[in-house]
Design a protein around this nucleic acid. Structure first.
Length: 282
DNA sequence: AATTATGTTGCGGT
DNA sequence: AACCGCAACATAAT
C-alpha cells in the first residue's frame, strides 16, 4: 500500500522510537517474510533509520543493515510498556492483541519495547544485508522523486526512449522511485497531463510541469502523513494519514475535477485502477 | 463468485 | 540489449 510519503512518515517515527535500542529477541512467525539469519542482529544496537525508494533501512553498523519493504499491506507497529497499540486495520482482532493474526515478525528490545511487523498479504519482507548487498539493491533504482538528482535533463532523457504511457513511466523504479498509483494519478491531474499519453510524446514544458507536480504532490502527502484508505496504512503508533482529505483524483470516480469541475473518470491502465479528468488532462 | 486492493519481480516475446 | 505486457506472489473485503 505505501508509497514514498507513507514510508517516509513511518521512518521519521521509527527513527525516534528505535534508534539507540538494542535487539534482544527476534520471533519469526512467517519464514518467507524474513530473509537472512536473524541471529546476526541479536545484541546489536540500532544506530540509524533511513529510507530509499519505498524501503525502510535500519542500520546496525557500516556492514549490517535490515531493509524492509512493506509492499501492499506491511505495517510496523511499535509498543512500549504495557500499552496496546490502537490501529485502523479492518480486521477486528488486530486491534485487540499484538502479536495478532497478521503479525509476521516480532522484535523485542533489551528494555522490553517491541516492534511488530504485520502484513496481511505476506508480500512484504525484511532482509538482512551487508553494505555491498545494500549498494547492489540501490544501484538498480532511479533517483527518489524528492531528490535533486531527479531534474528536467534527467527525466527528459529517460522518458524520450519509452513507449509506455507516462503514468506507467513515472511509476517505474528504473526511472524514478517513490511515486505509486495514488500519487501518479494525482500528479498527472495537477500537471494537466493525461495518463494515457506515451512517455516519449511529452514536450519539455510538459515534463517541467509534471516534475514540479510530482514533487509538490509528494511533499503535500508527506505533510499529511500519507494516505489511509480502510485503515490499511497506519503509522507505527496506529495513526492514519490525512492526504485522503485533500486527494485530487484517486478514488474520486464521478466526482468533480478540482481544475475544471468535470467528472473524474476511472479506467484500467497496466492492470491498475487509474483516475483522471478526460477534459482538462491533455 | 468474481473482482478489487496504495507493489515489485520474473517470464516470454519483440 | 533494451523494452514491453502480463502473470505471479497471498489474503480479505465487497
Amino acid at each position: 500500500m505505501p508509497e514514498l510519503p507513507e514510508v517516509e512518515t513511518i521512518v521519521r517515527k521509527l527513527r525516534q522510537a528505535v534508534v539507540g535500542r538494542v535487539i534482544a529477541e527476534v520471533k519469526i512467525f512467517n519464514p518467507k517474510t524474513f530473509v537472512g539469519d536473524e541471529a546476526a542482529v541479536l545484541e546489536q544496537k540500532i544506530v540509524a533509520v533511513g529510507r530509499r525508494a519505498k524501503m525502510i533501512e535500519i542500520k546496525f553498523s557500516d556492514s549490517l543493515y535490515l531493509l524492509t519493504h512493506l509492499k501492499m499491506t506491511g505495517q510496523y507497529l511499535f509498543k512500549e510498556g504495557g500499552s496496546l497499540v490502537a490501529g485502523g486495520h479492518p480486521t477486528a482482532d488486530w486491534k485487540e492483541q499484538l502479536p495478532g493474526r497478521h503479525t509476521r515478525v516480532e522484535i523485542t528490545f533489551a528494555d522490553g519495547a517491541k516492534l511488530f511487523f504485520n502484513d496481511m498479504r505476506k508480500f512484504g519482507w525484511l532482509k538482512l544485508v551487508s553494505d555491498a548487498q545494500r549498494a547492489t539493491i540501490y544501484d538498480k533504482l532511479g533517483p527518489d522523486v524528492i531528490d535533486e538528482e531527479l531534474n528536467l535533463l534527467y527525466l527528459k532523457e529517460k522518458l524520450s526512449a519509452r513507449k509506455m504511457t507516462i503514468k506507467q513511466a513515472i511509476m517505474h523504479n528504473d526511472i524514478l522511485c517513490g511515486v505509486g498509483n495514488i500519487y501518479a494519478c494525482d500528479s498527472l491531474n495537477d500537471a494537466r497531463i493525461s495518463p494515457l499519453r506515451s512517455a516519449k510524446s511529452l514536450d519539455e514544458s510538459e515534463i517541467t510541469r509534471l516534475l514540479a507536480s510530482m514533487k509538490k504532490i509528494i511533499g503535500v502527502a508527506i505533510q499529511n502523513g500519507g494516505t489511509t484508505f480502510d485503515g490499511m496504512y497506519v503509522d507505527i503508533d496506529g495513526k492514519s494519514g490525512s492526504y485522503s482529505g485533500v486527494i485530487l483524483t484517486y478514488g474520486r470516480e464521478d466526482k468533480n475535477c478540482y481544475n475544471c469541475e468535470n467528472p473524474i473518470k476511472k479506467i484500467t491502465l497496466g492492470g491498475r485502477g487509474t483516475y483522471y479528468c478526460p477534459v482538462c488532462q491533455k
